[in-house]
């Protein structure tokens, strides 16, 4: 901790839920001695799609990466506060981070398939986590994961071909298939459509909607229209503070906080 007095911040709207999937209290994030996130308090509901929006540098991606400890990979990054996945403190020393990231998967901005076959990309996580015992079981898991992502019919005849040969949209759906193959509880998506064309974006958004039946999804997006389309709740970040959390329908028609209003109406960028 820094020696400075801890700053508190009251978020507008309804950041808390009954029986949340994830619970964050008084979260601060520092890069060396520079504070990037200030006293974030929020619940993430089971099987909800929640979007994190805000101007560049507001801390939304930094916050997202706290939820599966991706920030651990940055030496100078330090996270304080309480972050729980159900009853488990995800920053507890006893936590196996690899296991945590299987429970809280991640999809990145740029599709990043491994330089392997389509089949091997999806099989990778299942293999390292020992999720299947036989080749038949693994085949079934891969087919199911690709089906869920609407990719199966497009790739079933070329499973052994390199994943890098797929289109951008297909690659991103493959990355989502790879994430869900290990049966996570939460999927974090960091601007998953910003490298895709509008058609591929629509396909991924449709997929997000379908996946929300079984998974909790947190999505960081620069596109406010995307947040409005895909999420049921929206969180607005500004200069490292969580300004407002509310139902998406409220945020886009009648936000509570002036800063939220100014951002979503295009008055601050």
């Amino acid at each position: 901790m820094l020696d400075t007095a801890k700053e508190t911040y009251q978020t507008a709207g309804e950041p808390f839920l009954d029986e949340p999937k994830m619970r964050v209290r008084n979260a601060d994030v520092f890069y060396a001695d520079k504070q990037a996130i200030f006293d974030v308090n929020i619940d993430i509901g089971k099987n909800e799609v929640i979007s994190m929006i805000g101007p560049s540098g507001c801390g939304k991606s930094t916050f997202l990466r706290c939820l599966n400890r991706m920030n651990d990979t940055i030496d100078i990054c330090r996270v304080t506060g309480e972050l729980f996945l159900e009853d488990q403190d995800i920053y507890d020393r006893s936590i196996d981070v690899v296991e945590l990231r299987a429970r809280v998967g991640m999809v990145f901005q740029k599709p990043n398939p491994f330089p392997k076959s389509i089949y091997e990309n999806v099989a990778y996580g299942a293999r390292i986590h020992g999720l299947t015992d036989t080749k038949v079981e693994l085949d079934e898991l891969i087919e199911k994961s690709l089906h869920r992502c609407g990719l199966w019919n497009e790739v079933k005849d070329r499973l052994e071909e390199p994943a890098t040969g797929l289109s951008g949209g297909q690659q991103q759906r493959l990355c989502i298939a790879r994430a869900i193959a290990v049966n996570p509880e939460v999927i974090l998506m960091d601007e998953p459509c910003s490298a895709l064309d509008p058609i591929a974006t629509a396909t991924v958004e449709e997929l997000i909607h379908e996946l929300s039946e079984n998974f909790t999804i947190c999505i960081v997006t620069h596109s406010m229209q995307q947040a409005a389309r895909v999420s049921s709740r929206t969180a607005y970040f500004h200069l490292g503070k969580l300004i407002e959390v509310n139902d998406t329908s409220k945020v886009f028609t009648n936000p509570e906080h002036q800063l939220t209003e100014e951002y979503i109406t295009g008055r601050i960028g």
Binding site: A228, F252, T253, T260, E261, T265
Partner: peptide, 10 residues
């Protein structure tokens, strides 16, 4: 063209 939101939409 603008996809207005919040006060602008209203």
């Amino acid at each position: 063209k603008r996809q207005p939101a919040a006060g602008d939409l209203r």
